[in-house]
Amino acid sequence: MEKLIVEVLLLALKAIGTACAVWIVGWLVGQVVKYMVTKLLGKIGLDEWMRRLSVGRAIRRTGYSAHEFMGILAAWLMYAIFGVLGIYASGYVAGWEDLTLYAYTALVVYIGGFIKLLLIVIAGFILADVFVGYIYRSTELRSEMQMLYPLAEYLRIVLYIAIVVFGVEQSGLGVGVLPQLLQPIIWGVTAIVVLFMVYLIVQSTKAPRQPV
């Protein structure tokens, strides 16, 4: 009995040691990736380009520049990947098949799906901002801009929602109820924009007062 307990403890220590070793390597890899991504994106002038987009301005509100934010994001992705790999390695060393299966599923389905979703959302949001920015640049008249602003922002929101739904579907995360949950939001935003447009039309049709 004592021999069995000792074997189990040694096996557990071996599994924990393996996981810790993988996690340490993952932390080092994350730091290297963070440094490389930050330096590379900083040199190519990502901040200047992202500052023109809504996504870039949202990133600035977090207190980080665009290249710093991307570096931190890349580092945390490495931490997550190696975190799951550490669990997988510990289960493999100890012969715990259920643990390795759970870790493999988490790595392939959830982390892999999240990376797909992240790439689709970032690329899609940037393209949506570029498209809406092109709409704004298509007019220079103040009266037209007043009417165009709510429509352009409504289009931006709808594009964002469509991109998120598409990203979730392509990622394979299995959030099938998301489109149904977003439908009330879309209808609510649509109603607000329609009411605001009606208000602007009514205001524009009012005749200006003649000076006495």
Rank of each mutant, 00 (worst) to 15 (best):
V168P: 14
L9V: 10
V193S: 10
L85M: 10
M50S: 01
D129A: 01
D98C: 00
Y92D: 01
L182A: 05
R137N: 10
R51H: 08
T100V: 07
Y35W: 15
I72K: 14
G56F: 02
Q31C: 02
A123E: 07
A94P: 13
G167C: 05
L85K: 02
V109L: 07
F114C: 03
V33H: 12
G17M: 14
W76E: 10
L46D: 04
I157C: 10
L117D: 07
P184G: 02
M36P: 00
R209F: 08
S143F: 11
Y160W: 15
M36C: 01
Y160R: 06
L73E: 00
K14W: 07
I161P: 15
F82Y: 03
L118A: 03
A89E: 11
T38P: 15
G56T: 02
F131Y: 13
V132Y: 07
T100K: 10
C20V: 14
M1T: 04
V32Y: 12
E169S: 08
G112P: 12
L53F: 10
M147T: 03
Y110M: 04
P208N: 02
L200Y: 06
V6G: 00
Q180F: 15
C20D: 10
S171N: 08
S54N: 13
G167M: 06
L73F: 02
T62K: 03
V194S: 12
G71E: 08
A106E: 11
R142V: 07
G167A: 03
I44M: 06
Y102C: 00
I161H: 05
V93K: 13
L9M: 15
W49K: 03
G174E: 12
I185K: 06
L40W: 11
L107N: 05
E68G: 00
M36Q: 04
A106I: 06
V108R: 11
G63T: 05
T18H: 01
G133F: 02
G63Q: 06
S54V: 07
G124P: 15
G83Q: 09
E68N: 01
F196Q: 11
L151Y: 14
Y64N: 02
F69P: 06
V194E: 15
W76I: 00
E68C: 00
I157N: 13
C20I: 14
Q203A: 03
I186E: 12
L13Y: 05
A103Y: 07
V212K: 07
V29E: 11
W96Y: 02
L117W: 10
A152Y: 13
V55F: 15
S65N: 03
Q210G: 06
V8F: 13
G113Q: 01
Y154A: 09
V6P: 06
A66T: 07
T100Q: 13
V55K: 08
E7I: 00
V8N: 10
G17W: 13
L127R: 04
I135S: 03
I135T: 04
A123H: 04
A106F: 08
L182E: 09
G112H: 02
V165A: 13
L159M: 15
E153G: 04
A191E: 15
M78V: 08
I161E: 08
R61L: 09
T62G: 01
R142P: 03
L151I: 15
V29T: 12
D129S: 05
Y134I: 11
I111Y: 12
W187M: 10
I126S: 12
L101D: 07
Y134M: 13
R137I: 00
K206A: 06
Y102I: 04
F131V: 09
